[in-house]
Write a protein that binds this DNA or RNA. Structure first.
Lengths: 140, 140
DNA sequence: TCCAAAAGCTCTAAAGACTAGAGCATTTAA
DNA sequence: TTAAATGCTCTAGTCTTTAGAGCTTTTGGA
């Protein structure tokens, strides 16, 4: 007998709030699950995997649209190579851009913390760094 | 005579859309500027600096509320710097976590592209990577 | 088996951070 | 001087969630 999950169980397992799960169904990011005689949702294991993937990708900062592409990719592993290649490449460059931006941000935040040596705001460079783009250690 | 900017000039200089500038004024992130006889906004240099700071901070991922804190502290320069420090620290650890996650994803996407190179159909591991935390090269 | 509590259902509305459009007024530059 | 560009306010929409009201279904213990 196959294990099924209620929406609440899925919510806990994937750390996604119940209304969010219903929202994902509404925007067709999740397939509509089966229902009990009383109308309650019952999810198969596959739904758990997918929701977990969505949650993880969201956490990584991917847009819903990007996730739709991931899903499309995953659902058609036999699609022509060029198509897959193109989609993957687009996402890879996205990921790399994101990493670069975050590394720039890391550098700046580290510099801010270093210069903010628990003095008063008068000497705190966080505000200076934030106001003046030329002060940035990196481009973005 | 002091240089003043129209809202459109400010928009171009700071790369912030015109309605967004008005929105920032509405939520009191920007001081209401002076007006011409005809009622158009005219911004002093200081407004440009502030908007530039706000835009930069938003770009770095700070929330409006965090920015409010920065501004509040800028207006009270004798206050201790620790609060500001805390905000930056919180962001820094967040940023580092995200960098690690994305680097793991980059690895997977690169592998996918490689397997696509020989004209054969890629075995799509992206969904697995995204769903299964245990598969990740790094912790998060 | 019965019943209260927990969990689920739909629907509406809000939050945060913008963004777009309608319809009109003011500035600017040829 | 006059047409184009820009600005004004106001309303309403976007996207991704999240919360609440009011009702129904499930579940677990007596």
């Amino acid at each position: 007998m196959v294990k099924e999950y209620s929406i609440g169980q899925l919510s806990k397992l994937c750390d996604v709030k119940v209304p969010t799960i219903r929202y994902y169904e509404e925007i067709e990011l999740l397939d509509p699950p089966g229902r009990t005689a009383g109308g309650q949702r019952r999810y198969p294991q596959a739904a758990r995997d997918r929701l977990s993937m969505i949650a993880h990708a969201r956490d990584l900062g991917f847009s819903i649209d990007s996730i739709r592409e991931f899903i499309r990719m995953a659902d058609h592993p036999s699609a022509p190579c060029e198509d897959l290649d193109l989609i993957a490449e687009k996402h890879l460059s996205d990921v790399r851009k994101r990493i670069k931006q975050l590394q720039a941000l890391e550098t700046e935040l580290t510099a801010m913390l270093k210069s903010c040596d628990h003095g008063s705001v008068a000497e705190c460079r966080i505000l200076t760094v934030l106001s003046d783009h030329d002060q940035c250690k990196t481009q973005h």
